[in-house]
Simulated scan of single mutants.
Amino acid sequence: MRTQVRCPNPMSQEDEPPSTLWGLDPIFSAFARLYIKDLLQIRESCQVPGIFFYNSHPIYKVDVLGTVVCKRERDDFFCYGVDDGTGVINCLCWKNEKWRESGDPPVAPRASAQSEPGLNALAELKKLREAQRRYSQLEIGETLRARGPMKTSRQQREVMASTFYKVNDPVMAEQIAWMMEVPDLYRKCYDKPFQLQANSTSGPTVGRVNRAAQILKDFLKEKTVTKFRPYDVLDLLQPLVCSLSQAKPGDQGPQKDPSAQAIVAGPSAGQQLRQLLKESLQVLQDQGAVYRKVKSQDELYHVTEQDKDLLIAVKDVIREDSKREKYAEKGCHVLHVLSAVRQRYSPNISKEALELVLRTLECNSDVISTTTNHYTMFS
């Protein structure tokens, strides 16, 4: 049984902070303890799938506690529907190799059993396995706590539990403590929007760089540019530098302050323009939108989505290696594909660029993802 949830549409580029700033929010590195109702309603990022936003806070790892209301079991995982009183979300809890081992531990030679009459290691091992099964196999009505990343699968939100266990809570002490702690987290953290310090000197610079990067990205997409050099797109950023230089004298007003003269006597417009272009190109490289196939004095940038040779190279790797026995079942892992593409095509391909290529190929029905990180050819 799957919980029917209508997932909201992804956020627009303007509604979410740039990905280069996500790490500044401490919630991004923590397991967010949100109500399940909010987990089902928060919007997904348009920059990186699997990242969600609550009040502009980037979230991808969550911590849920609730009552099991439905259960499915497969060979590799349990799927529990968890209800915290505000909603129900599916938690995929994977079985590890030791859990799937059936039968009792192998019988040791009698001599070893007699060597230490006070300790039966095999019996203790059996008890540990039984305890592990009890705490990882829950029934309807029991309390489950699960931690892990959240994703959208088939228009439904799911928690891919990296850690999960049954909570022994006969007097509901754990759940009461949880219900007292979560509202406090909302007041102190989640309900306060993520903002940079207003007096930060890097704030205006970061905003201008991201606007410049977006201008370049829109131009490359509109004109279907496959490769370019920095001087080809330098003029596109000229309005940003002109607007900044015109704003400076107005900001200072009619006062003749030595500090104002120092500002005016700073870097020239040409220097500012070249620095802005350099920083915005670095942002596009960090996002995987562009890359340099060969790092040389000739700064030639390739547009990732428009590079047909790169798309063909990735398809060839997946097509050839998916036939190997090692990758026949799940397909090729994204890190294996990355290593192969770096060896065969260019050592400068980043993981972000490869993931962008894989999403493009998947949208074109050239490849298909069998798991979150495995890909095989679409047959």
Rank of each mutant, 00 (worst) to 15 (best):
S243A: 13
V233K: 07
D286M: 07
A212P: 14
K217F: 09
P249G: 15
V241I: 11
Q238N: 04
L234V: 05
K293F: 05
S243F: 00
F228V: 07
Q272D: 01
L234E: 13
D298W: 03
S245E: 00
S268T: 15
S259Q: 13
V294M: 07
Q271W: 10
Q246G: 14
G203I: 00
N199A: 13
S202W: 04
K278F: 02
A213I: 11
I215W: 06
Q285S: 01
G253W: 06
A247M: 14
L244Y: 09
T205V: 14
D218I: 06
L277W: 03
L276W: 00
V283G: 00
E222D: 11
V225K: 04
G203K: 04
Y231D: 12
V283P: 05
F219R: 07
V290F: 08
L234S: 03
A289E: 15
G288H: 01
C242L: 09
G266L: 01
K278A: 09
D232H: 12
S268F: 12
Q252Y: 13
F194G: 06
K278W: 00
V294A: 11
P249N: 12
G203T: 02
V290D: 11
Q195S: 02
K295F: 06
V290N: 11
P267C: 02
L240Y: 04
P204T: 02
R274M: 10
G203P: 00
A212M: 13
K295H: 08
S200G: 11
D257S: 07
L273W: 10
L216E: 15
V264P: 01
Q275W: 02
T226F: 06
G250V: 04
D286S: 11
R211Q: 15
D251S: 15
G203A: 02
K295V: 13
R208F: 03
K295T: 10
Q246V: 14
P254D: 15
D251F: 15
I215M: 08
G203W: 01
E279A: 08
F194E: 08
A260M: 06
Y291L: 02
G250L: 13
Q255R: 03
Q282I: 01
K295P: 02
S280P: 03
L216F: 12
I263G: 08
A247F: 13
R211P: 10
V290E: 12
A212I: 01
G207Q: 08
P258R: 00
C242N: 09
R208G: 01
S280Q: 05
P230F: 14
A262Y: 06
K295C: 09
P254F: 09
L240M: 03
L220C: 11
V233H: 07
D298P: 02
R274L: 12
A289H: 10
A213W: 14
L284F: 04
Q255M: 07
V290C: 09
Q197L: 10
K293L: 09
A212V: 00
A269P: 05
D232N: 14
S202N: 05
V225E: 13
L220Y: 11
R292D: 05
G253Q: 08
T224P: 08
Q246C: 12
R274N: 07
Q282M: 03
D235F: 03
L220G: 07
K295W: 10
D257Y: 06
